[in-house]
Amino acid sequence: MMLPQLGLKGSRDIEQINDRLQYHPTTYEFYTDTSDFTQDGYKKLFDAVQYVQSQGVENIVIHHPMAYGQFHTELIAPENKFPQLYRFIETSTEQLVRLSSDLNIQCLVHGSYANETQFFIHQYSSVEDAQKACFNRLDRFKKMGGNHIMFENSISPIFSYGEPSLEDEIIDHHYRLAFDTSHCFIYVHGNNEKLIASLNHLKPSIVHYHLVDSYGQQHDSLPLGTGKIDWSAVLPVLNQTATSIYEINLKNNDDCREQLQSHHYLMNLAQ
């Protein structure tokens, strides 16, 4: 079993970047919001990526913005009813793919979120139709992004891990996957056996992990070892060629302490 790599997350804010860089992470994942997709913001994001690269960080992932206006960036939001949201998702994904291709890094897009999923599902005649719309859009983004784009699971029924039949469909699309352990754990209602089964089933398709603990009931983003995930069972089944970060809620965004604590927890477990 290989030792876990140190992967940290932060914004393009220089204080956050320098806080993370002092620990020499193998992977840095950028959190973004709508401000990163203005002309000025995009240039600053581009410069921030180059700065992190210049400091010897091998792997860089940019997380697609989670929200636009009052809504999450939900892929199934229909264009005819939510034209601005739809268009923002399109243009921001195009920008991320271009940046990722130019600088040889990765971008991450959520297949779905959970907060307004039911609201958006109701714009369709069935869950199946909504899911089909999601897959159609992901197929297009996959073609656009090639080896620079990956898709992350949610706890919504539209794009989640933990249900073997849906996982089979996801595998059939040959997506490059980001696996958030807490989202899967919540989706399977805190069942460690189902989490491990999902990690194993999707393993060949996984290129990136969000390592996060959870009680398995709601979105809680806990440091590793403080929730109910069985990390001693998770560690041996991780895809060793994939990158990973600790996506933990921080008390202070300029101090990645909780992410580091999670790494130390995993390192002790591995040894």
Rank of each mutant, 00 (worst) to 15 (best):
D13R: 15
Q271Y: 12
Y246C: 00
D255N: 11
V234A: 02
G216A: 02
E193K: 14
H264V: 00
P164K: 08
P236Y: 09
G225V: 07
I155V: 12
Y42I: 01
G111H: 08
S11A: 03
R137K: 15
D230S: 15
L177W: 04
E116P: 00
L260H: 10
L177P: 15
P236N: 09
A114F: 12
V234D: 03
A270H: 12
N104H: 15
A233C: 08
T93E: 10
P204M: 09
Q131G: 08
L3D: 01
K143C: 00
L108G: 02
T241R: 14
E58A: 15
K9F: 04
Q131Y: 03
G41Q: 11
D213N: 05
Y113K: 11
F120Y: 04
P65G: 07
S125D: 15
L222Y: 06
L269G: 07
Q259L: 01
I155E: 14
L108H: 02
M66Y: 14
D19I: 02
L269Q: 08
E94Y: 09
G145K: 01
A197C: 06
F135P: 14
Y215G: 13
R176Q: 00
Q5L: 14
K194H: 12
P4T: 11
D254C: 10
D255T: 08
N147E: 10
Q5P: 01
D13F: 12
F30T: 05
L75D: 05
K44F: 03
R87C: 01
Q70L: 09
Q131S: 06
I62D: 09
H183C: 04
L211F: 03
T93L: 04
P78F: 11
K203R: 13
T26C: 11
T226I: 06
R257W: 01
T117M: 00
N153E: 05
H173W: 00
E152K: 00
H264L: 07
Q271H: 14
E247I: 14
S54T: 11
G56Y: 02
T226L: 02
I248K: 10
